[in-house]
């Protein structure tokens, strides 16, 4: 009878032998993070994904679960990222009529801005002495997560560091677009949306949908086009470098 408490305390580690614990924890943190985000009045600087990630890390640490073991279980969820990336092609197709209406500004801005988004970060980090691993992880910082994971793997960067950088970029880009559009007195929802999606991927797109549906559509378009453009250009650029 005396080993009953021991068996109870060992539960987290015995249960984590199966991927179902990792999946359950991730799902729980996902919903808890979304709930907390609504309760906090939808703060601009703290998107639900950051809240969920904090909750999930705290839970893993509290249960003293082995992180690599969690990661192995969570692989089952990450498997769906491939098909989910393909799924992004459907809204991209649905936004295509916007390209037809404004194709000149969009096609001129996209390559310049998407290149700058990657180049500035890499050059600044390189000048401050970052290692090649860090540079490869920062390069896709303005690309939506499922595409960025693929890019980082191709470049040989660290996926966790890239994810951290991605979130910071999303939040910071949202704040900068809000601030700069006021300073430059730009009020066109199409421009704001495109800038939010291009620089701030999914975090910026979520903000754009709060501004208006048009802003949201242009943000999705900016996010999708930046993702495709960067995914095609970065691996080639890194190979030549």
């Amino acid at each position: 009878m005396t080993d009953l408490p021991e068996r109870f305390l060992a539960l987290p580690n015995t249960l984590s032998a199966s991927p179902i614990l990792a999946i359950g924890l991730t799902l729980g943190a996902f919903f808890a993070g979304n709930w907390l985000f609504r309760r906090m009045g939808r703060p601009l600087w703290l998107p639900p994904v950051v809240l969920s990630a904090f909750l999930l890390s705290a839970t893993i640490a509290l249960l003293s679960l082995d992180y690599t073991r969690y990661q192995q279980g969570a692989q089952w969820l990450m498997l769906l990222l491939g098909p989910a990336t393909v799924a992004l092609g459907i809204p991209l197709y649905q936004q295509m009529h916007h390209v037809r209406a404004l194709w000149r500004p969009i096609l001129c801005t996209l390559p310049v801005a998407a290149t700058l988004a990657a180049v500035y970060a890499v050059v600044i980090a390189w000048a401050l002495g970052a290692t090649p691993l860090v540079l490869a992880s920062l390069a896709p910082k303005s690309v939506t997560a499922p595409i960025a994971i693929g890019i980082t793997e191709q470049l040989g960067g660290s996926v966790p560091l890239m994810m951290g950088g991605l979130l910071v970029t999303g939040v910071v880009a949202t704040l900068f677009v809000d601030l700069l559009s006021r300073v430059l007195s730009i009020t066109d929802d199409r421009i704001l949306g495109f800038a939010l999606g291009l620089n701030g991927h999914a975090v910026g797109t979520a903000r754009a949908f709060e501004i208006s549906r048009t802003a949201g559509a242009f943000a999705s378009l900016g996010m999708g086009l930046t993702g495709v453009f960067t995914a095609l250009i970065l691996p080639l650029a890194f190979r030549l470098w």
Binding site: V49, L81, A145, I149, P160, L161, M163, A202
Partner: peptide
């Protein structure tokens, strides 16, 4: 999508 990328995000705290 957020659910699918969370395992990757959490990694930054542990590495």
């Amino acid at each position: 999508l957020v659910l699918l990328i969370m395992p990757g995000v959490v990694g930054v705290f542990f590495s």
